[in-house]
Amino acid sequence: MIPLSWYLILAALLFCIGLFGVLARKNSVAVLMSVELMLNAVNINLLAFWRYLYLTSTAYNGFVFVVVLFAVAAAETAVGLAIIISAYRSRKTVAAEDFTALQG
């Protein structure tokens, strides 16, 4: 059988790859894609914990978390893309490092 640790290490790896993408990619659409990777890593974790530690016939906590995360991911993508497109219209760029409105 597969021990729990495998899943957790896979999830951690996926999460860190995603994080690297978020931190290092220039294109903001690619940043969004990396965020999706991170969210998927979280989902793997949640389901792994459900399967290994909380497997009962009545507790659906893991499931509920995953469902809500799906909703969050969808919402995040929709809003993120809308922001990117709106920013693209006004600035003619999608490079994350060009969005410097936060500069003091």
């Binding site: 059988m1 729990l4 640790s5 290994y52």
Partner: peptide
């Protein structure tokens, strides 16, 4: 995670 004692726990059978 490696410090955690249930890190290598196996999956229970699926009821």
């Amino acid at each position: 995670l490696s410090q955690w004692n249930r890190f290598n726990s196996a999956a229970p059978a699926l009821p």
